[in-house]
Design a protein around this nucleic acid. Structure first.
Lengths: 338, 338
DNA sequence: GTTAACGGTGCAACCGGTTGTACAACCGCG
DNA sequence: CGCGGTTGTACAACCGGTTGCACCGTTAAC
């Protein structure tokens, strides 16, 4: 009596209560056209009566789907949580899936142990699809997914698109973003530009730089490009390096808003005014951007929409759709730092 | 040929390859004592040969377990991600589960829509257990879980323990934490104490205050207790209010390290030195604590360990263990602010 | 030499749904 | 009246594992 372990009603009980067979009950609840309205009504009433909810395990086995989508992340959880970029993107995925009956599972893959577990789950067919948040070329897990034929969506461009015919891809047009930022500098009349970017081996960084270059040409000399980490501390240090060189510059293009925040701090400390003396443009439209002083002009990456898109593509692929590639567009957010 | 949709090998194929029946193959792979070593070896070889991995759906139905544990969070994802307290706790859960074959699913329950979905999943028996990260009294979801008899672990003390006989509980001893912080003040000879706490309706806040009071008595008068939010901005503002009152005080007990960070900033701005003029003690041993100037003395809440514990209890309950309550102990981290 | 005990294996049922197909009842038609 | 065509339902197989129980051959005990 202390444990009300009411064992869940099964389809058989519903069928019995409605006076029909299991198959008829199933079809009635799934609204099959082959069942008469009359019978459907009776079955539905019976189902409500006994409080029937179809069991996930039985259904999964019968229909061959678990209704679970794995979100594969390479970063350790702590980093995942500290980087609002991910938060935004994951929210997008979650939001979209919450409209369906699918459930997202965050699957880490930073350690070897985690990757082995992930692989195991893939082989068990625990998931109907996988969304890889930070795919990298040569990942053994992607190889496994390809072999198993699991519908997969890659978020981010893979150099050389090695899996384009098998996997779907969603990414923001980083080169276009670079364009926008650089054009803003040019329109403002800035001629001597410095760039403080993220890690050199990051594909997004490469594309953004290409965008900058296409617009600015020699106004952004090689010597003025600095690669560093994504944080404000990195931006701060990088700016100090540049100031130490005592070169002339009137604009700084930053690889992230956090970098930009550090850059602005360093500039202010050096007695330079933003935007009077130097223009600064960020990247991401991170929460921090609007709170900078001056408020940061930046390039907005539609992360939430990217999440929506990734989830939708995954759902489509589960239904049998062919792999697709879709590109999200960047947008310049004008504020006061330019 | 473009799609290598190699349909996964089933147990039947393994059995055929090994020349035994399905049941024998199953038992051999599950290392049943009823099967001879000889046969086991043969079956394992066959399984390896055809690359057999047991299908999650089939197994789930047969054993009556999905091997999925839901982590129920009331906060929206953005807040979840911005609050490192959760990050730490979730990491603990994830870490522990990664040692088992169980998979955690983060299930949001902030909107009505989300709660309905959660309920639906519970009724479908999608999860073997639920860990409620921020349970509150009168939650309709807890009612559902109780009725369904789903093993549930509550993280945090529920006033009046309405479900103590059905659900397990894990929580940190906040009163003890208050004790530690207050004792440190007392030992340092501080006599006029101010407390800047989190929201008044938060049970942890109530318990911590009780701990402070038990030690300090009249050294912490009612008028000196301020309730506010958890952030540094809140601490900063609260401190300004107190300074405006022009009362004498030589110690500040803070409800979180972020509050403490704001408090220290405000004190410095007012020309007061920490710890020479005023001692400050935080709460949580948040990442920020060690980086404060001066480094913050604080009460460490064993969040990661709490996550481990919650996950372990959930696993035990799945195996049939009775509900338990376990209390995690706080610890004073001595740094320079006292 | 018969029989009981025992270790090893297979048959078949089961978990809880879905779905292909057979069949019965009914319709209108020639 | 017999026929083909529809409609509504039930039977049984299936998804891919696990498990209770019966059965077999062997060995040891009497």
């Amino acid at each position: 009596m202390t444990q009300p372990v009411r064992t869940a009603p099964t389809l058989a009980e519903v069928a019995a209560a409605a006076g029909v067979s299991r198959s008829t009950a199933s079809r009635a609840l799934n609204d099959s056209p082959r069942i008469s309205e009359e019978t459907k009504k009776r079955v539905r009433a019976a189902a409500k009566e006994v409080n029937f909810v179809p069991n996930a395990r039985g259904r999964a086995l019968a229909v061959g789907r678990t209704e679970i989508i794995a979100v594969l992340v390479t970063e350790p959880l702590s980093e995942l949580f500290s980087d609002p970029t991910y938060s935004e993107f994951l929210s997008g995925i979650t939001e979209e899936l919450s409209e369906s009956s699918y459930l997202p599972v965050i699957l880490q893959a930073s350690s070897t142990h985690e990757r082995n577990r992930a692989r195991e789950h893939f082989e068990r067919r625990s998931f109907d699809a996988v969304i890889d948040v930070s795919p990298y070329k040569g990942s053994e897990l992607l190889e496994v997914l390809r072999e198993l034929g699991v519908p997969t969506v890659l978020c981010g461009q893979l150099e050389g698109h090695p899996y384009r015919d098998v996997f779907s891809t969603v990414y923001s047009d980083d080169e276009e973003g670079g364009h926008f930022a650089a054009l803003a500098m040019k329109d403002r009349g800035r001629k001597d530009i410095v760039a403080v970017l993220g890690p050199q081996d990051n594909p997004a960084v490469v594309d953004r730089l290409r965008g900058y270059r296409a617009v600015l040409g020699e106004d952004l000399p090689d010597a003025n490009v600095i690669y560093t980490g994504w944080n404000s501390g990195d931006g701060y240090q990088a700016m100090h390096q540049i100031l130490a060189r005592e070169i002339a510059f009137d604009g700084v293009l930053c690889g992230s808003d956090r970098i930009a925040a550090g850059v602005i701090t360093a500039l202010n400390e050096a007695g330079l005014s933003v935007p009077a003396d130097v223009s600064v443009v960020g990247f991401d439209d991170h929460e921090i951007a609007a709170r900078c002083v001056p408020a940061l002009t930046t390039v907005r990456q539609p992360l939430r929409e990217e999440g929506h898109m990734a989830a939708n593509i995954a759902l489509d692929m589960i239904k049998g759709a062919e792999p697709t590639t879709s590109v999200m567009h960047m947008q310049l957010i004008q504020r006061d730092s330019l």
